[in-house]
Design a protein around this nucleic acid. Structure first.
Length: 800
RNA sequence: GGGCCCGUGGUCUAGCGGUUAUGACGUCGCCUUUACACGGCGAAUGUCCUCGGUUCGAAUCCGGGCGGGCCCACCA
C-alpha cells in the first residue's frame, strides 16, 4: 500500500469528536425513526421515561445502554424498531422542581396555569437531559417524545379512568387508607418503605373494676382511639377476662376484652389494645369484630378533639405528654426501649398512619390469579425476575388507591352532583373539574361539586404503552402495535411500574402489554453499595463520559449478565478504552490493505478458511446470545475472537502475504479480512456504536452500520479440515513465540529454523500451511521430528 | 418470619456435571516486530464461602450452615 492511502486514516482516534459527530449525524438523518407505513416486522420498546427533576445517574447509563444493545441488534435484524422517548414530568418531584425554579406555589394558580408553567419550565431541563442520554449513544426515536405532563398524556390518563369506571373497576369509598401526615395525602402500598426506628414499649394498666389488665403498646398516643383489648383465645392467663370490660386510663372509655388468634401471647404482656387505627391488624379486628370507629388524629398528624386536653398536639408530643401523665397516674407499669421496623412513606420518610378518608380505588385484589397468569405469559429476562412479580401479587392486601390529596397532577375527570350525589363524568378530555364546567347530571341538575383530588402519578405512568402508541378510540395504529415487544426496566420497580402497567394493559386491552421484559440490575458503588446522594458515593456518568467515552462506558455496561448489579469502578472503563483503541488500530491496518479492494470470489488458502470457519461459529453464537439478551456473552466472545484469534494470530499470519504485492494468495487474504472485519464491526456495533460507525464509514461504504444487516453464518464457509490446520498452526506459532521469549529474542527475530515435534498426521497438516508458518515466525525452514506431544524448538539465524 | 438472587486469584467477571477453571484490570519478567508499548509474548497469584450428600467424576446438581443484596410480611 502507498503512503497516500495510509495518510487518509488518522493515527489517533479521538472518541469525543467522533462520538459527537455521529450522535449529531444520527439525529439529523433521523436514522432511528420508526417507519410507519413499512411492512417490515416491528420491534417495539416501552422505553422507561426518566424523571425530569433528576439527573442522569450511573444506573441510567448502565440500564439504558443495555436496552440499547437489544434495540440496535433488533434493528440490524431488519426489524422496524419502534423506540420512543419520553419524560416523566408529572408528580411531586416535578412540582417541587418547578416551584423552586420559578419561585411560585402551585396552589396559588390554576392547575392549567401551573401545568403550562411545567411544560415551559421543564423544557430546558429536558433538552439537557436528552443531551445527556444522547451522549450515551442510545438510539431511540427522539422525534417521538412524550411528556407525561402534556395534554395528550393527561387526556390518556383520564380516558383510562373513565374506561375503568365504565367497567365497574373503580370505586370511591370512605375506608381506612394508608396516609402520610407529612404530605397530607393517601398513598399506595407500593410507596411504603421499611425503616428501623427506636421506640419504647410501654406496659399500661387498664382498670377492670378494682383489678387491672396490663397491655403493652408502642403507641400510647392512640389510647383515645382504643376500641377493644385482645387476648389469644388459648392464653390461660387471661381466659377469665374475655368478655369483660376494661376502662382506658386517662381517657376513660370502656372497651371490651375480646379473644382473637391474631393476638400473640408471646408479645409484650400478651394483651393488646386495638385502636382505630394503629396498624393493619387493628383494621382487620375492626372489620372482623364490627368495632366502633374512634379517630383521634387529624389529617396532618395532630391529635383531634377526641384526645381531650391533648388536642392540637402533634403526635410525637402527644405521646410524650401521655406517657408522662400515665406515669404520674401510676398506670405506666414498665417501659422498655426497643427498635422496630415501621412503615414510612418512601418520599419523606414519615411514619404512615391509617386514616379513614374518602378515596378512589381500582379493584385489583380479585385479579390476582389473572395477573399471575399474565406474568407467566411474559418472557422474563432473566427468568427469575418473575418471582418478584409473583411475590408482590401474592402479598397484595390493598386495592390500588389512585387518589392523591395533592393540588397538582392529573385531575380526576369527575364532579359530584350536589342534588343527587351522583358521579358526573367528563365528556371531553383533558379536563380540570376545578375550572371546567360539569356536564349536566343524569338527574338534570347542573349544580356540581368538582373532585379536587388528583390521580396517583403511577396511574399515568402505567399507561406508557397507550401513551407511546397514541391510544384512542378505534385506533388502527394502537391495535396494530399493541402489545409491544419489550419492556426494559430495572428490577427495583417491578412492583411499581411493571405491575401497574400490567394491570392497565389487561384491563384496557385484555392482553399482556409486551411479549418480553428485560430487567436490568443496578450500578453500585465500588463497595457494592447502592449509590445515593446521602451516602455521598454517587459517580456522575457525564464525568466518566468526558474522561473516557460513551463506547467505553457502554463496554463496561456490557460486562455483566443482564439483571446482575455491577459495582462501578473507574478502572473498569480502561478495558473499554483499550478495546476501542485496539479496534481502531487493527482497522487502520486492515483498511490500508483493503484500499481499492472490492469483494470478489477467489480460491481461499487454508489459513483464510480457518479464520472464516471460526467466524461462522462466532456469528452463530452471538446471534444466539443476543436472542437471549445475553449481551455480556456477545461482548466476551467477540472480544476473545477479535483480540486473540484475529489480531494476535490471524493478522500476524497474513502480513507476509499482504506486504507481498504480487502474491497470488493476497486476494484470498483480502477476502478473508474484508469479510471478517466487517462482520466483527457489525457484531460490535450494538455495543460500541460510535467507533464501529466511524470505521464502517471509512472503509465499508457510506451507509450507517446501524441500519446494515446483522451477519449471517454461512454453512459454505465452514471447513473442519482447515479449522484443524489453523488451530495446529496457532499452537506451533505459540510454541515458537514462547521459545523466542525464553531466549529473550524479539518476536520479529529472524530464525534459521523451527523444529516441530509432532505426529506424522500433524506433520502432513502443517506442511499444507508451511508458508504461513515461515512468514509469521520469520524462519528460513521448518524441520520435523516424530513426537507424541507437540514440541516446538527454534534455531536463531545467527546460530545462538 | 417467607421468597428470590449472589458468594470463583488483590479487584471485576465468565463457566453451571468431565476444561491444565475464562477473560479483563493490577503485579512481575522478556521483547521498540513496518496496525497498535493504550502493544506483543510469557510468568506468578485460586481450599471456585463452608460442611455434608448424589455421582465413576461437582465450581457446576441436592441438603444444612455462614456471609452479602433485593423484595415481601411482621412491626400491639
Amino acid at each position: 500500500m502507498t503512503q497516500d492511502a495510509r495518510s487518509e486514516l488518522p493515527g489517533q482516534y479521538d472518541p469525543h469528536a467522533v462520538e459527537r459527530k455521529w450522535q449529531d449525524s444520527w439525529e439529523r438523518e433521523k436514522l432511528y425513526a420508526f417507519e410507519e407505513g413499512s411492512s417490515r416486522e416491528v420491534f417495539s420498546i416501552d422505553t422507561p421515561p426518566p424523571t425530569v427533576s433528576g439527573k442522569m445517574h450511573m444506573g441510567h447509563a448502565f440500564s439504558y445502554s443495555q436496552q440499547d444493545f437489544i434495540a440496535r441488534y433488533q434493528r440490524m435484524l431488519g426489524k422496524n424498531v419502534f423506540y420512543p422517548w419520553g419524560f416523566d414530568d408529572n408528580g411531586l418531584a416535578t412540582e417541587r422542581f418547578v416551584e423552586k425554579k420559578c419561585k411560585v406555589r402551585a396552589t396559588q394558580m390554576s392547575r392549567k396555569e401551573f401545568q403550562q408553567l411545567c411544560l415551559t419550565s421543564t423544557k430546558e431541563a429536558e433538552e439537557e437531559l436528552k443531551r445527556s442520554w444522547q451522549s450515551l449513544g442510545i438510539s431511540p426515536d427522539f422525534e417521538r417524545t412524550y411528556r407525561t405532563v402534556d395534554d395528550w398524556c393527561i387526556a390518556t390518563s383520564q380516558r383510562s379512568f373513565l374506561e375503568l369506571y365504565a367497567q365497574g373497576r373503580e370505586y370511591r369509598k370512605e375506608a381506612p387508607t394508608i396516609w402520610c401526615p407529612e404530605c397530607r395525602t393517601a398513598i399506595a402500598q407500593v410507596e411504603l418503605e421499611d425503616r428501623e426506628l427506636e421506640s419504647s414499649f410501654n406496659d399500661i394498666a387498664f382498670a377492670i373494676g378494682k383489678e387491672k389488665a396490663v397491655i403493652a403498646t408502642t403507641r400510647p398516643e392512640l389510647l383515645p382511639a382504643c376500641v377493644a383489648v385482645f387476648v389469644h383465645p388459648d392464653d390461660q392467663r387471661y381466659r377469665t377476662l374475655v368478655g369483660k370490660t376494661v376502662q382506658v386510663p386517662l381517657f376513660g372509655q370502656k372497651v371490651p376484652i375480646l379473644a382473637d388468634v391474631r393476638a400473640d401471647p408471646q408479645k409484650g404482656t400478651g394483651m393488646v389494645m386495638c385502636c382505630t387505627f394503629g396498624d393493619q391488624t387493628d383494621m382487620e379486628w375492626w372489620k372482623a369484630h364490627s368495632l366502633p370507629l374512634r379517630i383521634c388524629l387529624t389529617l396532618d398528624g395532630k391529635m383531634n378533639t377526641l384526645a381531650g386536653k391533648y388536642a392540637g398536639l402533634p403526635l410525637k408530643e402527644a405521646r410524650k405528654a401521655i406517657i408522662e401523665d400515665l406515669r404520674a397516674s401510676g398506670a405506666l407499669l414498665a417501659q422498655r426501649s426497643i427498635s422496630h421496623m415501621v412503615n414510612v412513606h418512601e418520599r419523606c420518610s414519615t411514619e404512615i398512619e391509617f386514616l379513614v378518608t374518602k378515596q378512589w380505588f381500582i379493584r385489583v385484589l380479585d385479579l390476582k390469579d389473572e395477573l399471575l397468569k399474565a406474568g407467566r405469559e411474559l418472557v422474563w429476562r432473566p427468568e427469575h425476575m418473575r418471582h418478584r412479580y409473583e411475590n408482590w401479587i401474592t402479598g397484595l392486601q390493598w386495592d390500588w388507591c389512585i387518589s392523591r390529596q395533592r393540588y397538582f397532577g392529573v385531575p380526576f375527570p369527575v364532579w359530584y352532583c350536589r342534588k343527587c350525589q351522583g358521579v358526573i363524568l367528563a365528556k371531553e378530555l383533558p379536563v380540570d373539574p376545578l375550572t371546567d364546567k360539569a356536564p349536566a347530571c343524569a338527574c338534570g341538575s347542573t349544580d356540581a361539586e368538582p373532585e379536587r383530588d388528583v390521580l396517583d402519578t403511577w396511574a399515568t405512568s402505567s399507561l406508557t404503552p397507550q401513551i407511546a402508541l397514541q391510544w384512542r378510540e378505534d385506533d388502527a395504529f394502537f391495535n396494530k402495535m399493541y402489545p409491544m415487544s419489550l419492556r426494559p426496566q430495572a428490577h427495583d420497580i417491578i412492583t411499581f411500574w411493571l405491575f401497574n402497567t400490567m394491570v392497565k394493559g389487561l384491563l384496557h386491552s385484555g392482553k399482556v402489554p409486551w411479549s418480553h421484559a428485560m430487567i436490568s440490575g443496578w450500578a453500585l458503588d465500588q463497595h457494592g453499595k447502592k449509590m445515593s446522594k446521602s451516602r455521598g458515593n454517587v459517580i456522575e456518568p457525564l464525568e466518566m463520559l468526558r474522561k473516557f467515552s460513551a463506547d467505553s462506558l457502554r463496554y463496561w455496561a456490557a460486562s455483566s449478565k443482564l439483571g446482575e448489579d455491577l459495582p462501578f469502578q473507574e478502572k473498569e472503563l480502561v478495558a473499554g478504552k483499550k478495546f476501542v483503541t485496539k479496534l481502531w488500530n487493527a482497522s487502520r491496518f486492515v483498511l490500508q490493505h483493503l484500499q481499492g479492494y472490492s469483494l470478489r470470489e477467489t480460491k481461499l488458502t487454508t489459513v483464510d478458511r480457518w479464520l472464516l470457519h471460526r467466524l461462522q461459529g462466532l456469528i452463530e453464537q452471538n446471534t444466539k446470545s443476543f436472542e437471549l439478551f445475553e449481551y455480556s456473552r456477545v461482548r466476551a466472545d467477540t472480544e476473545q475472537f477479535f483480540w486473540h484469534v484475529y489480531c494476535d494470530n490471524y493478522l500476524e499470519l497474513v502480513k507476509g502475504r499482504l506486504y507481498a504485492d504480487t502474491s497470488p494468495e493476497r486476494d484470498s487474504a483480502l477476502f478473508a479480512l474484508s469479510t471478517t472485519h466487517l462482520a466483527l464491526l457489525k457484531m460490535l456495533a450494538p455495543l460500541l456504536p460510535h467507533i464501529t460507525e466511524e470505521v464502517h464509514h471509512l472503509g465499508f461504504g457510506k451507509g450507517s452500520i446501524h441500519v446494515s444487516s446483522w451477519p449471517k453464518a454461512e454453512g459454505g464457509l465452514l471447513d473442519e479440515e482447515a479449522n484443524r490446520a489453523g488451530e495446529l498452526l496457532i499452537a506451533v506459532v505459540g510454541g515458537a513465540r514462547k521459545a523466542k521469549n525464553e531466549k529473550a529474542l524479539s518476536l520479529g527475530a529472524e530464525l534459521d529454523s523451527v523444529t516441530v515435534g509432532c505426529s506424522p498426521e500433524e506433520r502432513a497438516v502443517l506442511q499444507s500451511v508451511e508458508k504461513d508458518l515461515l512468514d509469521v515466525t520469520r524462519a528460513k525452514r521448518v524441520t520435523y521430528q516424530d513426537a507424541k506431544e507437540l514440541i516446538v524448538a527454534i534455531t536463531p539465524a545467527d546460530g545462538k
